[in-house]
Design a protein around this nucleic acid. Sequence first.
DNA 1: ACAAATCCCGATTGGTTTAGTAGGATATAA
DNA 2: TTATATCCTACTAAACCAATCGGGATTTGT
Lengths: 143, 143
Amino acid sequence: MRFSTRGRYGLLLMIDLAQNSAQGPVSLKSIAERQNLSEHYLEQIVPDLRKNGLVKSIRGAQGGYILNKSPNEINVGDVIRVLEGPIAPVECENQMDEECCANTDFCINREVWVKVRDSITDVVDSISLADLLQGENKEIMEQ
Amino acid sequence: MRFSTRGRYGLLLMIDLAQNSAQGPVSLKSIAERQNLSEHYLEQIVPDLRKNGLVKSIRGAQGGYILNKSPNEINVGDVIRVLEGPIAPVECENQMDEECCANTDFCINREVWVKVRDSITDVVDSISLADLLQGENKEIMEQ
DNA sequence: ACAAATCCCGATTGGTTTAGTAGGATATAA
DNA sequence: TTATATCCTACTAAACCAATCGGGATTTGT
């Protein structure tokens, strides 16, 4: 029950952009160095962020990536959903809809998974990149 | 970001026991039939439940499994932790302790994962097997 | 004593996911 | 024109998942 490196690295990448892309495009190489990640692996992750409108790319020398919205308009949930797919603690065909449990008339566990999903969603959708940057300064985020 | 079948099937197994093991041991075969699961696969899951004191086994013909505590003393989190390992949305050596992020002085994302973990923990530790059985009768659990 | 039921245990397997790596094509600034 | 970048497709080694397989040990009913 854990997030993969796609979500984790992607979030680090987005935070790096939030910190560094105000003056101009930031290359994956520099992000990879600062965050101690594989540049090639970031290369595999970042197209999803671009296609979903979270970052913008500038090709060629001195190119790189910049945030496509301001840090307080992007929250952690946006990044995670793009890189890891929908937040769903069990694999139901149609995102945990009523028809998901074909085995039994009524899936007795469904409420558990729905509550878990909703609690995760609440957390990740309530924290923006700006919150994380502010949290860094304060060392401890507000509860 | 999802639970595997171990946790899901295990929870179904535990609920089946809560419903049926009051009068005596329940065989995996009957559970597998009722829940429409593979008996052999349940056989692979149930030793973990036994070793962690959640169920008790009775060997031989007419044997089977019974709950080792009352349904309101067992909560969903107990079952999940036994079958899926600790609830930790990222893989840090020492369960998300302060030393987890060696790459940087301070892991800016740590607060996110801690909050996600805590929110999941809150949910699964607040729902007992008894709650789930009651929820079945009411069709909708209380919020 | 014996057969059936049942738990117990280790090994194997086919498929998927993860976390990358390799190598090149395209675009652009200097 | 050269160095710096993004972009794109493919490949791979390892791990994990969801079982399956084949037996062995224990108990009950007859």
